[in-house]
Amino acid sequence: MNILVLVKQVPNTTEMMIDKENGTLIRAGVESIANPDDLTGVELALELKEKTNGHVRVITMGPTQAEDMLRGLYGMGVDDAVLLTDKRFAGSDTWATSNILSAAIKRYPYDLIIAGRQAIDGDTAQVGPQVAEALGLPQVTYVHDVTHYETSSLTVIKSLEEEKLTLRLPLPGLITVLSEAREPRYLNVKDVMTAHQKPLETLTFDDLDLSLDAVGLKASPTRVKRTYTKEIVQKSPVQTLSPEDAATLILKHVVGHH
């Protein structure tokens, strides 16, 4: 089974701090990691690879620093890694990002595409279904488990708000996975040792069958009109209390209220 996994590099926090002077994100000192849902996707791909004698290729779009993340994924046991990087890709919204990713995917053989449900920096959950649409593939989002595989289909459990559905996805197809599905494996020593010798494929705009009006900030249909921070105005006087007094005050409000 040929499996492609889409992975995004994200800041290792869900609470970015804002520079009060100019309203921009403070990126200094914030470590980059592979997005948690995506790492679970890599884990599921590696399990399927082991069971089917398959091949796992990871694809990411981002600045050249994303190479470090890809080397780390080699350390988990992926076979190939592709970095899509180009200044012309900068500022892409999800529509443009999905154009770029699907154009890249068309260069490789695949039976299954795995994406994380959503990335912790944007939380949109859009790129997986958009890539499936661009490639004309069936999809199952919010996958909580993969229970069975055949050459022509995959049986998965999809997690909805109140229920779980068991579904059969024909292949080729795309799934987006929840981090609850699997704990990603640790790096293994042998693969880490060879990670630095493995070739990293880098693709730019010129390698893809795409027009300029499908990529980057200018082509993106959504625009950020403005960003702003809300000044925190304390809504009530802040009182410093001993734990005992605080407990009494809270209980006074809560007791008998249910």
Binding site: E15, M16, K225, K230
Partner: peptide
């Protein structure tokens, strides 16, 4: 991005 940043988005 969490924090206190809001973004107003147009299409």
């Amino acid at each position: 991005f969490g924090g206190n940043l809001y973004a107003t988005i147009l299409c």
